[in-house]
Write a protein that binds this DNA or RNA. Structure first.
Lengths: 206, 186
DNA sequence: ATTTTACTTTCGAAAGC
DNA sequence: GCTTTAAAAAGTAAAAT
């Protein structure tokens, strides 16, 4: 039995081993970030497609695996920022970002821009905020987004600001610092964005 | 309404040329005050001109890259200064070296705020890169003229990748046209 | 809490790893 | 692919005041 196993390892071509490594990395990072199983499968599929299209050769397998996972989250609407994976990946951010652009373009994923509203439920849960705040924050994001106020802004920072505003409006206040921490942005960003949103929305309608 | 094309400002011109003569950069670094030469780091010697302000990368082969100039005339002027400096050092420089503009970076203002999300979808996700997590600008690759345009929520834009002054002008007209057609301008 | 400095993106050439 | 140069756009971050 051992001999057959060793035989298999020996005769396995490098490509197979690399694929296994990539998929195990997808699993590892998914677990670390709590990515659902269905999305991990999409990530595996994206990576296999990239392999078929010969997009992997000459590039970092780790970066391509991470990019596949991030792309899968984007495609499936599971809000996770690229920085969430930078923390668990073994390659630097710059390389992951480049790999993501490459995969996204070559595989024609045509992913739509991130909707800041997608981050609201997750952040609210981590802050133990009630449903009411979540609904208000989502409404603030939807309203300001419809005005195009989010153009060029960080989706996580934008969502964080709306939650800060909503939490105050609902008498469930969380400090800028608490919110900034779960969103992984600075208090300065929360402050800047929430001031803009404050001016843009009709407080009475919330 | 002011024409966006008239707001175009050239910010940087990159050009290449050559003096048709091999150079000893070690010696040149000694003779040229202000020259930076770190061969371990980069093979080119860096020399900066004050007026017009520009930076030149001078290579052992005698080829030179000039960057930072605000106009094509400034590129010629800056390189002219460098040619004279070299001649002053008894280095033979061709009479009138060919100077090739490789890239022109321009900025402009469309005069209206832009909804980049809507624009990303409208212009076609295939030709667009818009990742606000990473960078606030929308990157649009245009075919004709062959340039890359960075569009911001403020309506300010950057045009780069063009080799002719006209490229930026044509690009602005084209992008304004496309945005208007989409009903996303103003 | 505000100011300054710095990094993100796009582009191109150069010589060489 | 990287190294270096310069420049704009606007957002974000970190260090300094």
């Amino acid at each position: 039995r051992l001999r057959t196993w060793q035989e298999r390892i020996r005769t396995q071509d490098a490509g197979e081993r690399n694929l296994q490594f990539a998929l195990s990395e997808v699993e590892r990072m998914s677990s670390a970030q709590g990515v659902p199983k269905s999305v991990r499968e999409v990530a595996s599929m994206i990576y296999r497609r990239a392999l078929e299209e010969d997009l992997i050769r000459g590039r970092s397998i780790e970066a391509m695996a991470t990019a596949s996972l991030y792309a899968a989250c984007r495609q499936e609407g599971i809000p996770r920022s690229l920085d969430d994976f930078v923390g668990v990946a073994r390659v630097e951010r710059r390389e992951i970002a480049r790999a993501y652009r490459y995969i996204s373009g070559e595989l024609r994923l045509a992913l739509k821009p991130v909707d800041p509203a997608g981050h609201v439920p997750r952040f609210c849960s981590e802050l133990s905020l009630p449903e009411e705040v979540k609904r208000r924050a989502t409404r603030i994001v939807d309203e300001t987004t419809a005005q195009g106020l989010h153009a060029g802004k960080s989706p996580t920072g934008f969502a964080a600001a709306a939650i800060y505003l909503a939490s105050m409006l609902s008498d469930e206040k969380r400090t800028q610092s608490e919110i900034a921490d779960v969103a992984d942005v600075t208090v300065v960003t929360v402050r800047n964005r929430y001031k803009e949103q404050m001016d843009a929305v009709e407080l009475g309608t919330l | 309404m002011t024409d966006p094309a008239e707001s175009i400002e050239i910010q940087n011109v990159v050009a290449s040329t050559g003096i048709g003569q091999e150079l000893d950069l070690e010696a040149l670094a000694e003779d040229l005050p202000g020259a930076d030469f770190n061969p371990d780091n980069f093979p080119g010697l860096v020399y900066r001109t004050q007026e017009p302000k520009a930076a030149a990368l001078i290579f052992r082969s005698g080829k030179i890259v000039c960057t930072g100039a605000k106009s094509i005339d400034d590129v010629h002027e800056a390189l002219g200064i460098i040619f004279e400096k070299l001649r002053g050092l008894k280095i033979p420089v061709e009479d009138d070296p060919d100077i090739t503009v490789q890239n022109i970076v321009s900025s402009a203002d469309l005069g209206h705020q832009l909804n980049l999300n809507a624009l990303a979808i409208g212009l076609g996700l295939e030709d667009v890169e818009y990742e606000p997590e990473q960078f606030p600008g929308l990157v649009y690759r245009m075919d004709e003229p062959d340039v890359v345009i960075l569009l911001f929520g403020s309506g300010k834009i950057v045009i780069t990748g063009g080799k002719r002054t006209d490229d930026a002008e044509e690009a602005v007209e084209e992008i304004v046209d496309r945005i208007e057609t989409l009903g996303l301008l103003g």
